[in-house]
Amino acid sequence: MSIESSQSPVSIERAALSAALVRVAKQDRAALQEVYRRTSRKLFGICLRIFGERADAEDAMQEVYLTIWHRAGSFDPARGNPITWLATLTRNRAIDILRASGRRPTAPIELADNIADDTPDAEAVLIGLGDDARIGTCIETLAKSDATMIRTAFFEGTTYADLATRIALPLGTVKSRIRRALLKLRECLA
């Protein structure tokens, strides 16, 4: 594969990751190791976010990479962004594991600023998350409580109804707040 000099580091990273996933689909262990090398920090971030504990997050990571091993064939390099595919798979797998363990988070969500800041650091941009990471900046432009709800929905797979229960607000209120926040987010991302 020739890589043109005009390509950004992000698209080079994506192309490399796509190529590695294609090889994983052919049961190439070295390719899975390459995927691991390129993505373990990011995917660990998702697992850690969902489980809170390192040991649980690492156990989930094993399941995640085994799932990648088995499902790499369903990734379509012509259509999909490999980072999205991996992040979605990781998030879904981790949430499944959490639910299967009976530890589905049901704790009340405090709509205060008590959640770790996800603002992307320079390194995140360097390792190929550049334009995706823009959402980290945009979400900071929302009201803290709206940002917390969106993050919770993303990381914990919460539905509107779950969110309403945990925040102790009417369903309609939660829904209209999130929809307003999503429109604002779209404006910032556009």
Binding site: K42, R49, P120, D132, I135, G136, I139
Partner: peptide, 9 residues
Amino acid sequence: RFAGLTAPL
């Protein structure tokens, strides 16, 4: 876009 929320911690 949401995948970008998963920047390493």
